[in-house]
């Protein structure tokens, strides 16, 4: 944890004070991959910009794998070199957090360990940014600038499904295998089955569940090519999804499940009230349990090995 002020003096050092700009060069360079504290955890990030302000280096970072909305200016005390040693530290923090979170405190308890001065500087930065023409969503009239990682809704994926995701990762990225398309059942089939299952259970159609399922389908169709594919699956996507067909009529549970890893990030764009978010969370969880119950029929137990190697093997010369 950024316990907190490791004292910024590290950056401007005790070198020649005075009004000559310190010749001291930045600790981190633009484009450098770093580890950045956000809340209690360390995230992989990239330095987009480095600027010297009031003799202190400030860095504009992008958290890798996170939406650009999280990009922010931070001081040197929030960053760490991306070294093996520090990555281990990152993982340790993750683990620790994971444990801490099991105390069912939900998303409320965590706050950013930020010194107040730091916060002030950041506010200034925000202003600077705006004047630089950076489009912030303040335009939309919704005060959302403080969306922070901590505010993300937590989607607790059942453990056997987590294992499924790891297997999925293993098949695709490590063994060069692919999910054979089209899948059966498709994402659409699964959503329909769930709706039927719910209707039977509740004895009526609940409109709100229907709306959530539509939302999931819409997210899936839009998000699949943008954030749910491993690199090795892109070629297959372009072959399989042609003529504006919906991915949800081609792909199946394997890819649908990945959406739930991304769901908190997506939902962060909607400013949902606390109470409603909790309800949504419960409904999503119920759906995940349904997936889990049908895990053996919805998910493939083995992926297809032929396709990737077929395409790739030819080009290789050894």
């Amino acid at each position: 944890m950024g316990n907190s002020s490791k004292d910024d003096s590290a950056s401007d050092g005790d070198t020649s004070s005075g009004d000559t700009p310190p010749s001291k060069s930045s600790l981190y360079s633009e484009g450098e991959k770093v580890l950045a504290y956000h809340g209690p955890r360390l995230y992989e990030a990239k330095v987009q910009k480095a600027e010297l302000r009031k003799k202190e280096w400030r860095y504009f970072v992008h958290y890798l794998g996170w939406n650009k909305n999280w990009d922010e200016w931070v001081g040197v005390d929030r960053l760490m070199k991306h070294t093996e040693e520090n990555v281990v530290k990152q993982q340790a923090l993750d683990k620790k957090q994971g444990v801490d979170k099991n105390v069912k405190s939900g998303r409320s308890a965590q706050t950013k360990p930020k010194s107040s001065t730091d916060a002030k500087v950041e506010k200034e930065d925000l202003k600077n940014n705006v004047s630089k023409g950076k489009k912030r969503k303040s335009e939309s009239g919704v005060e959302k600038d403080n969306v922070s990682l901590e505010k993300l809704v937590k989607i607790q994926i059942p453990s056997t499904l987590r294992k499924q995701l790891v297997d999925d990762w293993e098949f695709v990225t490590q063994q060069d295998k692919l999910v054979k398309l089209p899948r059966s059942p498709t994402v659409d089939d699964i959503l329909t089955k769930y709706l039927e299952y719910r209707a039977k259970k509740d004895g009526m159609m609940t409109d709100s569940i229907g709306e959530i399922l539509k939302g999931i389908r819409c997210y899936f169709d839009k998000a699949l090519p943008v954030m749910l594919l491993y690199k090795k699956e892109r070629k297959q996507y372009h072959e399989a999804v042609v003529d504006n067909v919906s991915p949800s009529t081609i792909y199946g549970a394997e890819h649908l499940l990945r959406l739930f890893v991304k769901l908190p990030e997506l939902l962060a764009f909607v400013n949902i009230e606390e109470e409603t978010l909790t309800r949504l969370q419960q409904k999503v969880l119920d759906f995940l349990k349904f997936l889990q119950k049908n895990q053996s029929t919805f998910f493939l137990s083995a992926y297809d090995g032929s396709k990737v190697s077929e395409g790739k093997g030819k080009g290789k010369d050894d």
Binding site: G65, N67, K68, Q90, Q91, D94, K95, G98, S159, R162, L165, V166, D168, W169, K222, A223, P225, V226, M227, L228, L229, Y230, K231, R258, V261, K262, L266, F269
Partner: peptide, 18 residues
């Protein structure tokens, strides 16, 4: 949001045995 294409990346936390 949809113009920014990135590869799927399973968060580190999934690889830690629970």
């Amino acid at each position: 949001l949809l113009n920014h294409e990135e590869d799927f990346c399973l968060p580190q936390s999934y690889f830690i045995k629970e």
